[in-house]
């Protein structure tokens, strides 16, 4: 995969970003924001199982994770990303979604509220993934 660095934003073009989000339309919105930033979207996928299948392919550089996926939380995916040393951040519609996460490692991660603000999203993207 060819990757070049965007001088202005520090973002690598062609970075492969996994999107885990259980709402179809919201997932498409996030995917669109990522594409505008020059990233390649992995997924989006609505569940932990599907996210793990994509991570198994070993082609993921970073991830954007919705915390509550309906009847499960995204925590196992976050755990896997921590273990692999891959950057990621969360999005959630809950006011205090981090209470759903058991480990302080995940609670320290950046969290964007829903609906996602494009400006905040770009900022999070460049801060979290820019130097990856």
């Amino acid at each position: 995969m060819m990757q070049s660095k965007d001088i202005a934003s520090g973002i690598r073009k062609g970075m492969r970003v996994l999107v885990v989000e259980d709402s179809f339309m919201t997932a498409r919105g996030i995917a669109h924001l990522l594409q505008e930033l020059g990233a390649e979207v992995l997924g989006p996928v609505p569940s932990v199982v599907k996210a793990m299948e994509l991570l198994d392919l070993g082609k993921c550089d970073a991830a954007v994770l919705d915390i509550n996926l309906g009847n499960e939380t995204v925590e196992p995916v976050a755990k896997r990303l921590e273990e692999s040393g891959l950057p990621y951040f969360f999005v959630s519609g809950y006011a205090s979604p981090k209470s759903m996460l058991s480990d302080a490692r995940y609670r320290r991660r950046r969290l964007l509220p829903k609906p996602v603000e494009p400006i905040m999203f770009r900022e999070a993207f460049s801060a979290e993934f820019g130097s990856a």
Binding site: M25, G29, G93, K114
Partner: peptide, 10 residues
């Protein structure tokens, strides 16, 4: 709160 935000997001 979660439902409202999710719906607005959609």
């Amino acid at each position: 709160d979660h439902r409202v935000k999710n719906n607005l997001s959609v």
